[in-house]
Structures are given as structure tokens and as C-alpha cells.
Write a protein that binds this DNA or RNA. Sequence first.
DNA 1: ATATCAATCGCATGAATATGCAGTTTTCCA
DNA 2: TGGAAAACTGCATATTCATGCGATTGATAT
Lengths: 211, 211
Amino acid sequence: MTRIVIVEDKKPIRDGLRVLLSATDGIECMADYGNCEDMLSQLEADRPDVILMDIGLPGMSGIAGTREAKKILPDTTVLVLSVYDDDENIFQALCMGASGYLVKNTPPARLIEAIKEAHEGGSPMSANIARKVVNLFRKKLAGSVESDVHLTERETEVLAGLSDGHSYISVADALFISVDTVRYHIRNIYQKLEVHSQSAAVSKAIRKGLI
Amino acid sequence: MTRIVIVEDKKPIRDGLRVLLSATDGIECMADYGNCEDMLSQLEADRPDVILMDIGLPGMSGIAGTREAKKILPDTTVLVLSVYDDDENIFQALCMGASGYLVKNTPPARLIEAIKEAHEGGSPMSANIARKVVNLFRKKLAGSVESDVHLTERETEVLAGLSDGHSYISVADALFISVDTVRYHIRNIYQKLEVHSQSAAVSKAIRKGLI
DNA sequence: ATATCAATCGCATGAATATGCAGTTTTCCA
DNA sequence: TGGAAAACTGCATATTCATGCGATTGATAT
């Protein structure tokens, strides 16, 4: 049995969802809410397995609502059901803890399937949403791979130290080497990354996924 | 009609897939290969819409094969079909251009559905793969949101300049302000980010998604 | 209307960095 | 066993940074 709650401001839609889902075997609809604030206040009483969450809501958005809900019940699964399918909303919702994302014209059968899938550890997404997630993934994390440059272990340690705010001296102390050796590594790092300053090195290295 | 090719080293599996997919309406199986090299050499002749790609292959891996295939035919869609479901393989495959990822015990009906979905612009993923992708997404990109600290526009410009390797003087020139004003902004940036060096500031800012 | 914030500019100085040149040791593979 | 790669050390110095203190201006908010 999957316990769910619904957060959706438009009453006809909310009622429709409630009727549909209440009538479904294996799903128990604990409650439905028109906004996040009400849902959050009852969250610990409802203890849903899955929260069916709209994005465009009066007051707190579904994005923020997702974040807050995960704070209160980290084990609950948020499944976004939204008309918005732009990168920014998808990105934000997933980063805030949503585990699935469906567009609103999802057929009832698929919705039911998705709720069960979400509860069982999947991440149901509408086809075009999934593609967008994959593309976002690639776009944001590109360069993390195939970076033609490779830093040695020591170089990585040194650079990581700098990016943590350490000076040459404190890096040297931490690695039990002399300051001149730190300098030596830095030179090599600069050559490899083709830069001439710490900031540029740190920036490039992070963007390439080297540190 | 969806044109596909199969890349899978184990012949029984490859033959099984070929038989299954050849018999499916709407799918035309152009060829099947035991390794990426052969597939790549025939890619322009086959012109598949979807490449069904194994990961663990003799010679070039499916990951590298995906990258090469996308170089030759950028519009082709790669659908990974692998026994591996670890973060690293998923991550690499998606970054190299795969648009879908299924585990090998996927039932035939789902596989067929996935091929069509992939061809139509979706990104079919097995349930647990999808969840892993979402979690990876969050893990790698977390902090890009909710960063309690906010840099002003000017501060962002200054910090971006530094991360690009510019000195105070060149940043000042670029922004038509004096070096002392650059210093002023840097101070404020350091305070907000609670750091005392460029490297730490750049590092924190990037990880928080501020620049 | 006054307070707050962002942005601008200036000066000063000890501390840290970038980079040139010149070596030795360790490790690991062919 | 010889040779490349990585790691290590040293010294010198012009340049750049980090941060102390002080001041003015415009805009926005209360």
C-alpha cells in the first residue's frame, strides 16, 4: 500500500486526482491540499510515501515545498506533476529532492504506474522530461570527462589544498613537503591547465572535474 | 519505421535481440555487431536511428563507442543496454551522448517500447537507473541552489574575472573601475564567502553556482 | 528624510605568489 | 639495468595580493 498526498491548487484537478487515486488498488490517498503550507503542517500526521506535487502554487512554490517536505520527512518521495517542462523548473525540482517529474497531460494509467514506481525506488519521468534531464546532465557535467589533461595524485592534493584556502606553506606542512616542492607542483599544474594564477587553475580544475 | 543496429559481444544474446527486434513492427534491424569498431566502420552505411549498445565489449568499450558514434552521426540515438548499473558507467555513458540506459534483464516488451521512445525524443531508463541519474544529478549539482549567500552583480563580475585568470588590474580595466574598487569588491566577496584567498573564493563560488 | 546598501576611489604595507634556473631521489616499467 | 616520470629541494625576485583605515555618491527603502 502506497500512502500519498496531493498538492494542487486547482480544485477540479485536485478532486479529479483524488477520485482517481482513491479508487486505485494499492494506493491510499491520505489527504489533498491546495498549497504547500497546509501540506507541510500535516506532513508528520499524513506520513505519505509519495507526495504528488504541483509546481505553480499560490504562496510557497512546489519547488520550495519539495525542499521543506524532504527536510521534515527525508524518506518521503516527491513526484512532481506540473505543466512546466522548462529546464529551470526541472533542474530546481530535482535538486530540491524531487524523485520524479511528470507533465500534467500524463494519462491516468501512467500516473498510477509512476506513483508505484516512485515508491519502489524508481524515478518516473515523462519521456521529454527524461530527455531534458539527460541533456541537462550532460551540459552541466560535460568536461568532467575526457579532459585530455591529467593531474597526478600529488598535483591534485596540492590544488585541492589551495582551493580550500590554504597557502603554499600550509599545503607544504599538510603534505610534509617543502614550500619549494609545492611551487614545483603548482608550476606543473599551471602548465597542464595553461593558466598563470591560482584562481584560474582552481576554476579550470573544478570545471573539468579534476578536484 | 525505426532503423536500429545492435552492438553486443555475446552471440546468443545478440542473436536473441536480433530475432526479437526484427520481428517487431515499426523496427528495422539494419545490422548487428560484436564490437564497436565494426559498428563504427559501417555506421554511415547503416544510418541507424537508434544504436542498441552494450557497455562491456572487447576492444573499444560501449562508452567510447557511444562517443565515436555520436561524432559520426550526431543525430543518432544511443540506447545503452548493460548489466552494469553503477554510477560511474551510467555517468560516463550519458556524458558521452547516450540518451537512454536499460539494464539487461529488461523484458522484451519494455525494450521495444524503449527503442521507440528513444527514437521519439525520450530517454528511457530502467527504474533504478533513473533514480540513480536523479541522485547523481543532485549530488553533482547540489549547492547550485540555496546558497544563503548572494553576490551582487558587480561582485560576480569581479570574481568571474579572477576565475578566468585576470589580475586585479586587468579586471579593473575590463570593468572600467579602479584597482582599489576591485579590491573593495574582493573584500566583500571574501567576507560573504568567509574566505581569505582568491582560490578559496573561486572554489566556493563555483560549487555554490554563483559563477 | 534619513538610513541602509551597493558602488566608487585612495593609500599603505607585510605577506604571498609566479616564474626563472638548477639540481637529487624514488619509482616503476621495459 | 637503464631510462623516463613523478616527486622532491633550493634560491632569487619582480609582481601581485590581502587587508588595515577612511571617504563620497546614488539609489532604494522605511
